[in-house]
Design a protein around this nucleic acid. Structure first.
Lengths: 136, 136
DNA sequence: GTGCATCCTCAGGTAACATGAGGATCAAGC
DNA sequence: GCTTGATCCTCATGTTACCTGAGGATGCAC
């Protein structure tokens, strides 16, 4: 298969496929006599694996580790699970941060909504509030 | 004030303060005869404003706009509010994505937890599941 | 005057690709 | 056989918001 087909079948862009190769995530990719890359189904599966892991939010470095765990003669599924669990922790932290940001923004917006309900009011403190170094 | 003091009082690093200047977020910063930057309280307030907006998740470009709205003779608080509301939308999208990721990871981890409850089992499909191009 | 802290200006690194330049090759149609 | 458009190649640079370090000047304390 050409890189274009590989990209299509793996859900990557052509540039991304080349990038993953540069990053060493793929096993040696063959070359046709004309110099073009040639992909087989195992390569496609590997690309899909990488793509899916990235979609799940794992970093390329994480994916490298995940591939290491799955490349072993008998895949180390416990290691994979642990990375999944670790990633869930990060996600929970991110969500907490997002929730806090939304809170702050919401109260900021409300400041203005109340003060400027009728029209723009000089009593609106949204700008000052934005500058105030509060908890957050 | 020196850049070090300005950094400390605004909650930025020295490098960040220089960076914001490069980005044009600060008004002309004075220089001492020895070439060092000199900051006044208005500069500190501005830095704090920028820092707080960044902490709230606005991009530097957003901050530029926010500064534009607040620099006006009479600050355009409605514009500020609108940007806050727009940003809240983005945050909600991000949270939805995070929730979805957590779901997927959770079900992945459960796959392994169940199959490998006693010990590592060849029946565990976590690796295959990771490779499967599912909805997500 | 001897350190150590702080400052200066570049330049390059980070993450994960996207985009474009400049050029070769392929497949299809005439 | 030739043109045309799609695809491929490599290499370089852009993106975001800074961080880090090189190499050197200055300031302050003892």
């Amino acid at each position: 298969m050409s890189i274009g087909q590989a990209a299509q079948r793996s859900g990557c862009t052509v540039a991304t496929v080349r990038h993953y190769e540069d990053e060493g995530l793929l096993k040696a990719i063959g070359r046709a006599p004309n110099g073009r890359r040639v992909y087989g189904w195992p390569d496609i599966h590997r690309l899909r694996f990488v793509r899916r892991c990235r979609d799940l939010g794992f970093s390329v470095d994480d994916v490298r580790s995940l591939l290491g765990a799955t490349d072993a003669p008998s895949p180390d599924c416990l290691a994979v699970r642990d990375m999944a669990v670790a990633h869930m922790k990060r996600l929970r932290v991110m969500r907490a941060e997002i929730d806090a940001l939304e809170q702050s923004l919401s109260s900021l917006a409300n400041t203005c909504n109340e003060a400027c309900a009728i029209g723009r009011s000089p009593a609106c403190t949204i700008v000052e509030d934005l500058g105030a170094t509060a908890s957050g």
